[in-house]
Design a protein around this nucleic acid. Structure first.
Lengths: 278, 278
DNA sequence: CATGGAACTTGATCCAAATCAATTTATATC
DNA sequence: GATATAAATTGATTTGGATCAAGTTCCATG
């Protein structure tokens, strides 16, 4: 139905800037290796990573466009995205909103563990592969592995931080700058998990999806993209945004990655207070 | 500087619809008695409530307009709002954004426990009183009280759910409907903690604040409020919105409280799946 | 009770984006 | 390779809200 990408986007995106370490990591932990990669990794012990990998009792494929999880549904397991992309979508009458985009390594409905029912749907954008983690397993982690539990908690808070950034972007940016921000964020997040390219960003999203993420209409999104093209910021063709100057894209979208809590950002133990002490 | 309310808003708001139970609750747990009141309460044991109360090692007053916590600052404790209101604010150049409003009972920077640095400021809207919970105490909860830990986690996820709702509201509503939504949400949240009135909503926010919450200018917010008045939805005068028909306010703001996970909403153990099983 | 500074209100002009209405290009599929 | 359908594009018109520019009301304080 939407953005089916048969050229391997969801599985084989070229990995640029790859350390040996990333490859090693994925060899050792094929299912959860990307979880929080580029963020808190230093604070997750090898034993914990192993535990994490063993939480996954099963993997499943989700076909493009499928609603993996419905709003309000009682859940007894959470899902980690191994491959592909998923969107959180909200519905309001006939209108759909995309509340967030998840990339490989994201524990897409980890908050379902504490909430038991989500307030939004989870939809695969393109074909995806996910790992299933029963809530009983998470329960055990809470009981026996408080440090790992705190890391899981941290992961859900990252989503909240992204939501806050989106609120600010929606409030101040024009449609063209909003998409630029969306792309800059996506790129950074893909970089974190070792899936970033160096001169382009792949996305399974069509213009109508981008519109639903930016709170505009598909028609206006088309014009916004035309403007990005005209201004030489980037050009979206068939699922890929080609960018010659990444800095310009980020500036145009007023993207400042600190809210993603990557290394050097607001991540615990790194970076000094940007604003000085109270 | 802003919205100083000397008439006791932050301490003495009239409690309507009060059960005996609320008064009892507050007598027993004067500091944390409102935490998650009206939401998960059935699943917090008496022992846990007592533990929670004992987490607070100190209370502090925060004066109106004071920045209690700066973005990026390393934190070693979290703060529960006992009395008054606080806002999460983001800055982007000269422009300020209000990313969320906290009411009594909210654990305003509980996410600081896992994040260690916040991506936004916390500012008192009017005079406030807060309880300090050192992170070592939360650490102990993580170690010894997994069930309580999960409840704390739940509390931070509620904020994220509110963020998501705001994203949708920003994307679809006009300024007048957005404020209506803000008021409807505030009212509902005050109801949860036993502070709701029955024909009006008090707020420490001035029109400029409401504008910063709704992503408009103060000038336009003024016109939006004029429209609410004209349409008979509600009238804001000196810190109080007078409402004759609460349903109309909620409909106008397209407010559906389920995202607040109150009883009968999406709260675990209550309400059936609104969309049927997958 | 005069005065200064917030907070609020009103008016006029301009622009980003919605909306209505087609049309063109891709992408599958028979 | 003809045909259907999704996706992208272009044009014209309307509108919510920004912005610039004054006012006015409220309220604390000397």
């Amino acid at each position: 139905m939407k953005g089916e990408l048969t050229d391997g986007l969801s599985t084989g995106a070229v990995v640029f800037g790859t350390d040996e370490s990333i490859a090693d990591e994925l060899a050792a932990f094929p299912l959860t290796g990307r979880f929080l990669m580029g963020r808190l990794r230093h604070s997750i012990s090898a034993r914990e990573r192993q535990l994490l990998e063993e939480l996954v009792v099963e993997t499943r494929s989700v076909e493009a466009g499928a609603i993996m999880l419905h709003r309000g549904q009682l859940v007894d397991h959470s899902t980690i995205l191994i491959d592909g992309y998923m969107m959180r979508t909200g519905q309001e009458g006939s209108r759909r909103f995309i509340l967030g985009l998840q990339v490989p390594g994201d524990f897409v409905d980890l908050h379902g563990f504490a909430l038991k029912r989500l307030d939004h749907d989870l939809v695969a954008a393109g074909p995806a592969r996910v790992g299933i983690v029963p809530h009983e397993r998470l329960e055990e982690v809470m009981q026996k592995e408080p440090h790992l539990a705190r890391i899981l908690w941290f992961a859900t808070l990252l989503d909240a931080a992204i939501h806050r950034e989106w609120i600010m972007k929606l409030e101040q940016l024009t449609a063209a700058r909003r998409v630029a921000h969306v792309f800059a964020e996506l790129w950074q997040r893909l970089d974190h998990v070792g899936l970033g390219r160096n001169d382009s960003v792949r996305t399974p999203l069509i213009q109508a999806d981008l519109a639903d993420m930016c709170g505009t209409t598909a028609i206006h999104m088309n014009r916004a993209l035309a403007q990005l093209r005209k201004e030489g910021i980037g050009e979206l063709r068939r699922g890929t945004l080609y960018v010659s100057d990444r800095r310009r894209l980020e500036e145009y979208g007023m993207f400042d990655s600190s809210y993603l809590y990557g290394r050097g950002g607001l991540a615990p133990g790194t970076a000094l207070d940007p604003k000085g002490p109270a």
